[in-house]
Design a protein around this nucleic acid. Sequence first.
RNA 1: UGGGCGAUCGUCUAAUGGUAGGACAGUGCCCUUUGGAGGCACUUGUCCAGGUUCGAAUCCUGGUCGCCCAGCCA
Length: 573
Amino acid sequence: MTNSNPESPVTPSQVASTPNNFLGDIIAEDVRTKKYGDAQIQTRFPPEPNGYLHIGHAKAICIDFGLADQFGGKTNLRFDDTNPEKEEQEYVDSIMADVRWLGFEWDRLCYASDYFGQLYEWALQLIKAGKAYVDDLTADEIRQHRGTLTEPGKDSPYRDRSVEENLDLFTRMKAGEFPDGTRVLRAKIDMASPNLNMRDPVMYRILHASHQRTGDEWCIYPMYDYAHGQSDSLERVTHSMCTLEFTDHQPIYRWYIEQLGIFPTQQIEFDRLNITYTMLSKRKLLQLVKENRVSGWDDPRMPTLRGIRRRGFTPEAIRTFVAAAGVSRTNGVTDIEMLEHFQRDDLNHRARRAMAVLHPLKLVIDNYPEGQEEFVEVANNPEDPSAGTRQVPFSREVYIEHDDFREVPPPKYYRLSPGKEVRLRNAYFVTAQSVVKDAEGNVVEVHCTYDPLSRGGNSPDGRKVKSTMHWVSAAHAISAEIRLYGNLFAKADPYDLEEGQDVLDNLNPNSVEILLGAKLEPSLANAKLEDRFQFERVGYFCLDPDSAEGKLVFNRTLALKDSWAKEQKKAGA
RNA sequence: UGGGCGAUCGUCUAAUGGUAGGACAGUGCCCUUUGGAGGCACUUGUCCAGGUUCGAAUCCUGGUCGCCCAGCCA
């Protein structure tokens, strides 16, 4: 993937995959100054297994794995599984699969729960050093004692218990002698700190809950803030990248590391990925699934990796997009068009072309012999000659897109209309002659004549046509269900709410449109899952797993850019 | 309001005291057997006010605006 030879061609995506950013600058400097001696660069991707990964995680993954790779280091996948009440094996499995799908492989597979024993020992050590105490205050009382943003907190009345009493109480907490919520272990730091995170943070809470990995071995569980920094330290993570909201937690991690005298990991924060028309709250995403507002975590409208994968997005495009969007410390919102651009760019180069008519209109070629059929040769991908060609059947009756014929053409309309000659792609020139209408006056059939000399799509006399249209032979067409997807949210900023509204009130009511009458060229009957196609002049599509024997379902990944639609919009405006 | 973080084209992001550049979006033209793709061109920006300096997006001072923090969530 890296290219050190300046003479050899470098593709734009390669350039985009190794951008300069402030994280790389920091690591490069640390490598230069040998801050960690001869130790390799070590990073980690630390998801909590309480939901499916989404495009925002993809950014973190690309940063964690990408940066380590760039500097010859390694990356661990570590599950931050310190809250058994929210975490499930299902999520662990999906996260591993999704990381691999994105194209990354971890060095070590770790769990914060691997460190429960060590963390407990360290807690004992802190108690013995007079740096931690058991607090009997209720959650409510602890909150009240914490103070506010502007007022300092108050010491708990249990803050000055003896080491012996703390040791006794904490070991009994572990032994299961106390009910949930009755006591916690807290770090003795500073109740007056302007950083609320430092006002004697809770280290352990009592939770008689079964953990997906440790079962019932523990009934006390460490808080994230007590577990995270030490987990990094234990894995000798040199650079621990995380999102901006954890900036205020750095002092806690450092405090534990200093008190314990263990390996000092360096944490560096970066901005979260935000995308227009998209919502990346794990909690809200869960709600969408639970309330059946979408078909599941893998609904093609979901911003989950599972969802966009089913929609037809590729790991390559996601990685290119993440790199292009960049990383900084500003809170911004990236235009979803940027994601779509890199996905189209990727698919344009790789996707096999096919012809599919979404809204069929029958076109009868009056001077084409009845009962005759022939095959025309079509390039599988004009962008890639090595993709070869295929034979597509042609006959007297074909389907064309309803929108490709206008009885009364508007200005700048290049497609078929009475008396106008156009090209049926790779086949023949045809000229519209007459129409058949139903009782309501809708055009239901168009009759035309063709020029037999224009076989393949060119006339020997050099005649030009203004438009080329896709088509499917009616006699050979296969049917399929087509699902057209749009943005899940109606507003660029889903959180742009009226008083009393919820973000889910901004869901786009038209985020999916299902077409049942589409006609496709027969070769599409052989489509397999993960195959990607460009239906020419329409968009990029992939086979949906809902497909079954004799029942094809295609998802539209993205529509092709449409300058005619833009033209119409301008005319209408 | 206490603390932390941040502010560069419409959007995202470079420039690390020395020509404000790229990508996306937009506009126009060219090309085209996909109104796709491609090519060319164009437009638009350093939050504000002072200061230091030969020279400031960058350094200093003071404002303004935005984000995060008061879970026994992560």
